[in-house]
Each structure stands twice: as C-alpha cells, then as structure tokens.
Design a protein around this nucleic acid. Sequence first.
RNA 1: GGAGAGGUGGCCGAGUGGCCGAAGGCGGCCGCUUGCUAAGCGGCAGAGGGUCAAAAGCCCUCCGAGGGUUCGAAUCCCUCCCUCUCCGCCA
Length: 424
Amino acid sequence: MLDIELIRRKPDFVKERLSTRDRELPKLIDDVLELDSRKRKILTELESLRAERNRKSKEIGFYRKEGRDTQALEEEVRKLKLKIEKLEEEFSDIEERLKEVLLRIPNLPHESVPVGENEEDNVEIRRWGEPPEFMFKPRPHWEIGEKLGILDFAKGAKLSGSRFTVVRGMGARLERALVNFMLDLHREKGYQEVIPPHLVRPEVLIGTGQLPKFEEDLYRCERDNLYLIPTAEVPLTNLYRGEILKEEDLPIYLTAYTPCYRREAGSHGKDIRGIIRQHQFNKVELVKIVHPDTSYSELESLTADAEEVLKLLNLPYRVVELCTGDLGFSASKTYDIEVWFPSQNKYREISSCSNCEDFQARRMKTRFKDSSGKNRFVHTLNGSGLAVGRTLAAILENYQREDGTVEVPEVLRDYVKADIISPT
RNA sequence: GGAGAGGUGGCCGAGUGGCCGAAGGCGGCCGCUUGCUAAGCGGCAGAGGGUCAAAAGCCCUCCGAGGGUUCGAAUCCCUCCCUCUCCGCCA
C-alpha cells in the first residue's frame, strides 16, 4: 500500500512514478485524493460531535452524583447520537471505498528502474557462464525426461489435468537433492530455515499484495476460507505481520522450501509442454525483513545468494533488471535471474528478486522501533533461491548427452548418490 | 466433533457501567547517586488518526473482530475468530 501522506503531499510525483508502469494508474490517484478529502471532512465533523457527546455524558455522571435532574441533557445526547450514527455510516462507506482503491494500486518503481513497457525493455545487467556447445541437436527437457522415465506427463494429466506432472525415480531424487542443496547453502549464508503453512488466511495474502487484485490466480479452499500459497514469500513475509520489532532484531533472513500453487489464469497456451509452467511446483524461497536504510544493498546480496546456486550448479545464466512496465505489483525494483535453455536457445526466468520497500510492511503493519523511539515500517525483500522444477529442467537440458543420459552436476552427486541419470 | 476456560499496552497482570487508555510488576529510555557489568533514587514512554505551515496544545478512535443495550461500555448482551485444557478421532 502506498503512503497516503505521500499521495497527499506529492500527488504529481506519485502519478508520474505510477504512469511509468501503466498510463491508466494516475486516475486512481485522483480517486484517492477525492475520497481522502471527503473522508477527512466528515471525520472532522464526526469527531467534534463525538467530543460533544463525550463531554455531555460525563456531565450527566457528575450531575447524577449531586442528585440533579439530567433528563434534558440525556435527551440532547440522544439526538447527538442519531447524528453521529448517520455520519459514521457515511464515513465508513467512504473509508471502505478508499481502502478498496488503495489496495489495488501497485508500488512505486524505484527511481533507478529503467522505464519501459514490457519484457522487451528489461535491461541485461550481467551474464555468467558459457552456454554449452553440443555436437548434436539438444533436446528439450520434456523429451529427455520422458525418455529417462523421470517425467510422466500422461500420469500427471490423468490425476489432475494439464500443467500437472508426475516426477519419478531419479527425477524425484534429483529434485529432492536440489531442495536440500539449496536449503543447506542458504542456511550457511545466514538464512533461518522455516517450514510454513501452505494454507493461509485472506488477510495474509492482502499483506503481501496477492489480494484483492489477483484472486483469479489463487487456489482457494472455500469451506475454510483459506488459500493455497502461490509462493513461500507469502507466509514468510507475513510471519511478523502486525508486530513492532526491535531495531536490533533486523535484519531477519528466512528461507523455506514449499510447493507453490498457481491457477495460471490467463497464461493459456504459454509453455504448454514441459515443466516450466505448472499449477504446482516446488520452490526454495528467500525472504529478508530489513531496516529501510539497507534494503537496496540487501537486494544486491539476496540476488547474489540466488545466483550462487546457479554458479555452483554450473548453469549459465544472466541477470536482468525489470523495467517499470514489467515490475510485479508489490515490487519497487526487481532483478530476474534467467537460466540458459539450450533447446529454446534462450534464457528463461528461474528466479525473481525484489525489494518491496515498505509497500508490504504497510499492508501488514510490520514495524520496528528505531533508535529515537519512533515506529517505522520495515522493508521486505523476496527472491527465489531457486524455482526447483525449472532448475531440474535446466539441468536436464544443459547436462544432457547424446545418448539421452544426463550427467549429475558435481555438487549434487553426494546428495543423489549417482553421477549419471540413465533410463530405468 | 463434544465439554470447559480464556483473549487487556513490548511481556506478565489487575480492572464487572462514568476522571480507566487502563493499577502493579518486568523489560525499555533519560537523569542522579555509589570507585567496577550490580544495586538504589527520580523522571519519561501504548498504537493509530484529525486539527495546525510546524511544534505545543486540543480532540477522536483502539482493551481479539463485528453488532447491540445505555446519556455513558474494557466492563452487560449477541455473533464470529483465535488460544489453552480434557474427551473423541487421527499421521
């Protein structure tokens, strides 16, 4: 959520920033300004009426003790009460509408973010590793996986429909090995390992920004009014919702492995084959809750921590800075890490590392008491470290051999207890 | 699922209709004192918001959430949520 104070003080600045995301957004700021000024006008009136009521009610108490008659006063207060109730209704109506608009406005892009409309305007920051040269035509991961008997698309569809896959045998072991490898690595870097709930309340999703705007993308258990998490970012970031932390508690580094559940509404036809885009996929997530002064350097180190996974796996990648038009709802600044896919001859997203500044903190009411005793919102960051299914796919493609077998990356061999994946 | 207990400030905890936004304790901060990190004494401090150029001040809201009763609710009533204990079920 944006700071209403900022919107009031610098509406043009806010509009300018938002317009770099989407030209339609500044209109919403006008709505906010409108509703906010009406809200405050009513509030002022409401408060003076309430003050009057409180004062007179107290007087009644005193007079009664002295045995005086208070009927006339009581009647006055009764009348006041009616007025107050009417105004209160008006007030909460406007407040509700204001909140509704505010919750649907995305975060302001940081000034350093390149302005652009979509993916094409993203800026490559750096590359690491060399795409492997093959003496044969590299196969896509779904072919490799099916041939090896480790990716079973037919069974996935039978059980659950499209975008569900059964991973078997060495594939399952490799995936589990990846999870352990990633968690171990991050734990060594100072992240606390967490196992969060996979089902969360709506407020929690409002906190990180998935609701109210992206309801369509979520799986919901209606009976219990709980949602399946689309990413561990949601429960991890919300761990401190509503709390006032001590300054010395910061920074907090968290990591978790969870499945992620996404309806993928509106992505029909994209990445139909393979395991790049699934309704359920595993991910190791990194979350940081930090002091506002440090959030941008923390973003760099968080991105580096995610990159480290690819370096150790020896998978070629590049880091891309998202332009304003491609930025996610809650993010001020985002680096995407894209891994090389030989069969597609291009880099594909495998991690997204964002600084949300105080956008989520304001929604969650997560604050800390600073050295001067003032309560301030924390900054929150998140990034994949990494998407496990996509990492598996990248390994299959980059480590494939002409005979259809796949070499196991060096660092995983102790985990999987095998050097080569061959058909079972 | 059944029965019971309970949800108050960073934490513990008192408070059953009106100077209660809340005693007391712990913890915190600031002084002072004592030749040491200890102890003692005094003081300060809940959160959010409105008004104001700003500060002060004044005012409003908040005692799990939402309704209700009342001139007046942390206190009474209703609904919901959550936590705990016992029983049942269960990996």
